[in-house]
Simulated scan of single mutants.
Amino acid sequence: MLISEAFKAFKATQNNVQWSVSAFNEKGELVLSLWHQFFQPVTVNGERAMKYVDRVSRWSGNGNSEFREKLDLATKNGATVRAIIAKTNSPEAIACGEDASKYKNTFSPKIDWVGSITKWDSDNFEIVFSKQV
């Protein structure tokens, strides 16, 4: 699935389909494209969940400042976070902050996941996702 199609699954529109990896939808939820390799399973209140751990300084590009701004706003407003899982054929390159558009990537909206930001210090961030019941 294309990234633009994944955002549409949440009724969110990217500012720029070439580089936007974050957008708010009509419900005020923050929709983020997040790399598969930075997720880890966790237990929250006895239930299985997924935690995303990353830092925005790991990568650069046009979408970076927009991503930071949206994380700031979502943290301030306590917005729900929705996930699009991005997978690449070159996880090592992504981990090093290389331009992801150079690689074969796929995008899958996790419609049944609802997340909340548990850490954001203007660089490092963590988001915990649970299945929506």
Rank of each mutant, 00 (worst) to 15 (best):
R55V: 01
D99I: 02
W120E: 00
N89L: 03
N64D: 03
T75F: 11
A95V: 14
S122L: 13
Y103R: 15
E5G: 11
Q132G: 05
A23K: 06
Q37C: 10
S90E: 14
S90A: 13
A93H: 13
I127S: 05
Y52L: 07
G61N: 02
N64E: 12
A74I: 09
G97I: 13
A74G: 06
A93I: 11
E47F: 07
N45Q: 14
A23V: 10
T88E: 07
E69S: 15
G46Y: 09
F67H: 06
G46K: 13
G63S: 00
S101L: 08
V44W: 08
A86H: 01
N64H: 09
A83D: 05
D99E: 05
N25I: 04
E26M: 10
L32S: 05
G115F: 02
K70Y: 03
Q40W: 03
N89Y: 11
W19L: 10
A100M: 01
V53F: 04
E92I: 14
L34M: 10
A9K: 15
A49M: 06
K87Q: 10
P109Y: 05
T106M: 01
W35E: 07
R55W: 01
N15V: 08
A23E: 10
G97P: 14
M1D: 09
T106V: 02
K70R: 08
L2E: 07
W19S: 08
I85H: 07
G63V: 00
V31K: 04
N105V: 00
E126D: 06
N25G: 08
V42S: 00
S130D: 07
W59E: 12
L34Y: 07
F10P: 05
I94F: 06
L34W: 00
E5D: 13
